[in-house]
Design a protein around this nucleic acid. Structure first.
Length: 295
DNA sequence: CTAGGATCCTGTCAGC
DNA sequence: TGCTGACAGGATCCTA
């Protein structure tokens, strides 16, 4: 199998959490000695304020990675669709985010947009083929007032039972897939986890929100949590996962994907065939037998 | 207020 | 073979 060239695998909440956990062990207490901005669009805020500062902590909200510095500033990194972070320290390397051959290439490469140079000689590379992602330097106040973070819904596991159903009532006329991709409804769900959780919950992606019961939405919420936890535990889309010990390519999606990018293949539950269509303007994978239209 | 379409950007691939 | 246009999609912006 392996990863087909050009395929997009968007870092979602579990991938960003994987990055956070991986980087936490590598960059805490490291001092920034230099910053190279290779693409102006990819970097927002004060370019000099972090120089000489140490990283004191890493947090995450939804798909946003938040790095706290010794002077109280924050660096928000959003990988959007094709972002990746690659930490290089001599022979040691940790790469995560959008998986591609860059995980193993010499750094910087043509997709490198920002380089963080640490005083011990190690580097953190922010790569982003499509330039939709960004790094943004913020003060504590700016972080608190950030438009995206302010509107962002709670993490799935921080919600009470029934809360997703309540939040969805503002979006009764749209499809359930569009609604759970909305970061103001639930944080961190992207295209892959939307398809996977809807399949696991047995809900047709194009179903109107108003046609779904509280019980069905509670079930969907539980599947979102279960699948995201599974993805975090298996450390999705890191270099280890992309390249096997023997150097061949692994497929991180094999670990948990039942429908995503499996169109034309057999459904593991009913033996039917997985279809691909378009819902909410996104490629959408589902089993027409296990996920039937209702209402 | 919500719903839905256009937009950004680069690389891949189908079709001529 | 080489060009051209369609497509991929997270979040934002704009319009209805």
């Amino acid at each position: 199998m392996g990863v087909v060239k050009g395929e997009v695998f968007m870092p979602e909440l579990p991938e960003v959490e994987t990055i956070r956990l991986g980087l936490e062990k590598l960059v805490i207490e490291k001092k920034l000695s230099g910053l190279e901005i290779l693409c102006e669009k990819s970097f927002k805020g004060d370019k000099d304020i972090l120089i000489g500062q140490k990283i004191v902590g890493l947090e995450r909200r939804g798909k946003a990675l938040l790095i706290e510095w010794s002077n109280g500033r924050w660096l928000m990194i959003h990988l959007r669709m094709t972002g990746q972070l690659i930490f290089v320290d001599g022979d040691e390397r940790f790469a995560a985010g959008h998986p591609d051959e860059g995980f193993c290439e010499e750094m910087p490469n043509r997709k490198t947009r920002v380089v963080f140079v640490f005083s011990d000689g190690s580097h953190l590379f922010f790569n982003d083929q499509r330039k939709f992602g960004f790094c943004s330097v913020l003060t504590q106040d700016e972080l608190r007032e950030d438009k995206f973070l302010k509107k962002l819904a709670p993490e799935p596991w921080a919600m009470a039972e029934g809360e997703l159903f309540e939040r969805l009532q503002k979006h009764r006329k749209t499809t359930i897939k569009a609604a759970i991709l909305d970061q103001t409804v639930i944080a961190g769900v992207g295209n892959i986890y939307a398809d996977e959780s809807l399949y696991a919950a047995g809900i047709w992606p194009a179903q109107k929100v108003e046609d779904l019961t509280r019980t069905e939405i509670d079930g969907l919420w539980k599947e979102i949590i279960r699948i995201m936890r599974l993805a975090i535990e298996s450390g999705g889309s890191t270099m280890k996962d992309y390249v096997r010990a023997d150097g061949t390519r692994g497929d991180y999606l094999d670990k948990f994907a039942q429908v995503f990018r499996r169109e034309g293949r057999v459904c593991g539950r009913c033996g039917g065939v997985i279809l691909k269509t378009k819902v909410a303007g996104r490629g959408t994978h589902y089993c027409p037998n296990c996920q039937k239209a209702k209402g």
